[in-house]
Design a protein around this nucleic acid. Structure first.
Length: 109
DNA sequence: TGGCTGACCTCGG
DNA sequence: ACCGAGGCCAGCC
């Protein structure tokens, strides 16, 4: 579907958009799926432009299930609220049952 | 224009 | 098992 010609950012957006409801993924998972495990940083940075896209950046967290990017959202606990709104239990910036809500792109794509 | 930063992860010692 | 450093690409000053 996605030609290799697409840039890293575009690919990230494509994958992030496909994240199912009530599920979360990590930057590294997406990066690794794209074939650039070392480019996990870029995935997070790509989320910076996700604001203009329909990318649920709140469903993307770090490897520890910590909402590191919540500081980039509008309010303070907005990101946590969104996740809890989807049924995901979040303790402060730590996602509970992260293993259960974790969605691997390679698992579905 | 050139250079630094940034929502991270993996590898090496 | 723990700690330190590197790497990637694009946007912004």
């Amino acid at each position: 579907m996605q030609p290799e010609t697409l840039n890293f950012f575009d690919k990230v957006y494509q994958v992030a958009k496909q994240i199912p409801y009530g599920r979360v993924t990590s930057y590294g998972a997406i990066a690794k799926y794209l074939g650039a495990a070392k480019s996990a940083r870029m995935v997070g940075y790509a989320m910076n432009g996700s604001h203009n896209k329909d990318v649920p950046a709140h469903r993307v967290v770090n490897r520890k299930g910590l909402l590191t990017g919540k500081h980039h959202f509008d309010g303070t606990n907005l990101m946590q609220q969104l996740l809890e709104s989807e049924g995901i239990k979040v303790k402060d910036l730590q996602i509970q049952d992260f293993d259960k809500v974790f969605w691997d792109p390679a698992n579905n794509l």
